[in-house]
Design a protein around this nucleic acid. Structure first.
Lengths: 343, 343
DNA sequence: TTGTATGCGTTATCAT
DNA sequence: ATGATAACGCATACAA
C-alpha cells in the first residue's frame, strides 16, 4: 500500500468516493458528517496512511502549529527542564517546538525573527529576559509571546516563573534562623529583574531580622561560576568577612564554594553558602548545596498553556504567573563559625 | 510602513513594477535578472519589509527547511552541546531545528513521525541509538537521517559520534600506566552499540596489558547514577575487589564515586575511577573526574553538515564519522592502593 | 530578460 | 449532508 508519494486528501476522497470537502469535514468537524460517510472516510484514511500536509494547512490557515523558543544559551542548566515542560504541553496540543539560541547576540535574534515573519511560528517563548531583536519597530508585530524564567523587561509580555522574592526570602530566613547576621549577597547584574527581585527578598529578610542596611554586603557578578569566585576574592580583600554567602544563583554559589575550597576553608564549618535554582549539579557538590528549587517543568508547562490560550484569542487573565519556590535543605548551611567573627 | 498584514511577493512586484516571477527570480537566481530590475526589486523588498512565506514556499517545493531532532531526554547532559552544534550549522544554512523527546517511548516516537509525514521536517537527527518508531513499515519512507552520539542499531543510518573504542582504550591505558591490573568495567546494557564498543576498548587495553580475561570484572548497569551505585554494591559483595573502576559513562562514574564516598573510601587514594563523556558535572565532583571528552559541539556540527549534504541529494561518502575522543586527566585516578589487594 | 499561468494540498464559502 | 470551487503565497515551465 505504500505509494511513492504521500497520500493527499484527494487520494482519500477518491477511495472513500466522496469529495475532498467531505474528507476535510470528516477530519475537522466530524459532527457535520453522516455516520456512514465518516466511516468510509476513516477507512480510506487508514488504507492510504494519509496525514494532513501541514504546509498546505498552515498556508491556508495563515498560521502554523509551531512555537518558537528562544534562549540565550541552550546549555543553561535551567533550560532543559523548562523545555521539557514546554514541549510536553505543546505536543499534547498538536504544536511543535522550534528552537533558537542567541548567545545574547541581537543579530542572532533577528535571524529568528524571520521564522516569525515567515509564518513558520505562531507564537514565541522567550527565555532571555529581554526581547532579543534589537529595538526595531518589529516589536510591534510580535506574535503572542510569553516569557519564562526571567521577566522580559523591555516588552509588555506575560511572564511565568518562580516567585524570586519569596524564594530569596526563604534562603535568608534559613540563614538567619541558623544564627547568621553577616550575610553577603552575591548578585547578578545581567539578569536585572530576577536579580533585583532576589535582592529584594534578601533585604526583606534582613529587615525582618533587624540587620541594618549598613551591615549588609552586596557584590555583583554576572551569574557565572567564575564571577562567584571573583566576587569571593574581592570580599577577602576587605577587613570584615561575612559568615554566610547568599548567592543569586547556583552557578555563583558553585564559584564561591570552589574559591572557598581553594583557600582551604570548610563548608559549612567555616562559611555557609546558599544558591538559587537547584540545578542538577547542586546535588553533587561537596558539600551538597542548599538552594531554592525552581519548578522548571511546571514553569514550562504553565507558560506553554498560557501561550496556547493567547493563541486561541483569549486575553491573558493575568500578566504574571508566579510559582512557588521550594527551599531545598542540603549540607552547605549550618550555624555560623566564631572563627572569623572579629578578624 | 507597517501594513496590517505581512507583505507578499505581489506587493513587492507591484511596487517594483515587475511580475511576481521576476521578484522570485531576483531573490533565488539573481544572475538571471537584469541589474537594473534587481535593484528595483531589492528596493521594493526593503520598502515592504517582505519576507518569503515559508509555508507557501515549502508547499510549492514539497520540502521544508526544518530538521527534526529526536532525543530520548532533552535533559541529558550530553544533549545540549550537541544541540548547539546542530543548531549553529543548521541556521547558517537557513534551516531551523524542531525538537522532540521520546522518553524512550515508541508511542511518542510515532507522534514525531507525523512531523515527518506531514512534510514539516525535511530531515531527521536521531539521538536515540534506535529508531524510535516501533517496527512499522514506515521506516521505509524515512527522510534523510543521521544518528548522533550513538549509532542507530536498527536502521542503516549514517552516524556521527566519538570513537568509543579508542576513547575507552585511552582510559584503560591510563589506568594500566598507573599500575592498575584489577580494573572493573561498569557497563550499560541499554545503549548497546556505545556500550559494546567501549567494552571492546576496555578488553583491548587489558589484552595489551596482559591481563587475562578471567581476571576482568564486568558489571552492567543502565548508564544512570543510581545504576553506578548499585553496581558498586554488587561488587562489594564479592570476595575480590578491583583497584579501579572504569565506567561506561560519567553518570555511572558519579554513582560509583557517591557509593564509594558513602562507604568512607577515599578517591583516588583507595580506588581510582574513570568516566566517559566529560559532562559538565565531571569538573565539580570531589575529586574532579578523569574522563574521556566527547567533542559535542563538533559532533553536532558535523552531523548536521552531513545531513544537509544528504538533503542536497549527494550520497554520503561514508556511513560513519568518528571523531577523536580526548583523555581529560583530572584527580580521580592515581596509582593503586595496596590496601585491598589481598582481601 | 521578462511575463503568464499552473499547481502544490488545504480549508472555507457557497450552492445544491 | 454533500459537492464544486476559490484562495492562501510561492516557484517554475513555457511563451514571448
Amino acid at each position: 500500500m505504500s505509494s511513492s508519494s504521500p497520500a493527499t486528501i484527494e487520494d482519500v476522497a477518491r477511495i472513500a468516493q466522496v469529495s475532498i470537502a467531505t474528507v476535510s469535514r470528516a477530519i475537522h468537524t466530524p459532527e457535520k458528517v453522516a455516520n456512514s460517510t465518516r466511516l468510509k472516510v476513516n477507512q480510506a484514511i487508514a488504507i492510504t496512511g494519509y496525514t494532513t500536509n501541514a504546509m498546505a494547512r498552515s498556508l491556508r490557515l495563515g498560521r502554523s502549529n509551531m512555537i518558537l523558543v528562544v534562549a540565550p544559551d541552550i546549555g543553561d542548566p535551567n533550560f532543559s527542564n523548562i523545555l521539557v515542560g514546554l514541549e510536553n504541553e505543546a505536543r499534547s496540543h498538536g504544536y511543535g517546538i522550534l528552537i533558537g539560541h542567541t548567545h545574547n547576540d541581537p543579530q542572532r535574534g533577528l535571524e529568528y525573527l524571520k521564522f516569525l515573519n515567515s509564518n513558520q511560528a505562531a507564537g514565541l517563548i522567550l527565555f532571555t529576559g529581554i526581547l532579543p531583536f534589537g529595538h526595531q519597530s518589529m516589536t510591534a508585530r510580535l506574535p503572542p509571546s510569553v516569557g519564562v524564567f526571567e521577566p522580559v523587561y523591555n516588552g509588555g509580555i506575560p511572564y511565568v516563573g518562580v516567585d524570586d522574592i519569596e524564594g530569596a526570602r526563604k534562603a535568608v530566613d534559613l540563614l538567619v534562623a541558623e544564627g547568621h547576621r553577616k550575610i553577603a549577597f552575591i548578585g547578578d547584574s545581567r539578569t536585572r529583574l530576577a536579580y533585583s527581585r532576589r535582592r529584594q527578598g534578601y533585604d526583606a529578610g534582613l529587615d525582618a531580622a533587624g540587620v541594618p542596611p549598613g551591615e549588609r554586603t552586596i557584590l555583583e557578578g554576572d551569574g557565572t561560576i567564575e564571577s562567584g569566585r571573583l566576587a569571593l576574592e574581592q570580599l577577602f580583600m576587605r577587613d570584615t568577612l561575612p559568615t554566610a554567602f547568599m548567592c543569586v544563583n547556583d552557578q555563583t554559589a558553585i564559584g564561591v564554594m570552589i574559591g572557598l575550597g581553594a583557600r582551604g576553608y570548610d563548608i559549612p564549618g567555616d562559611f555557609s553558602v546558599t544558591g538559587f535554582d537547584d540545578v542538577p549539579q547542586a546535588t553533587f557538590m561537596t558539600p551538597s548545596l542548599t538552594t531554592i528549587r525552581q519548578p522548571r517543568t511546571a514553569i514550562g508547562k504553565s507558560a506553554m498553556a498560557l501561550l496556547l490560550e493567547l493563541l486561541s484569542g483569549s486575553e491573558p487573565p493575568e500578566t504574571e504567573i508566579l510559582l512557588r519556590p521550594d527551599l531545598i535543605v542540603r549540607n552547605s548551611v549550618t550555624a555560623p563559625s566564631r572563627r572569623f567573627q572579629k578578624r
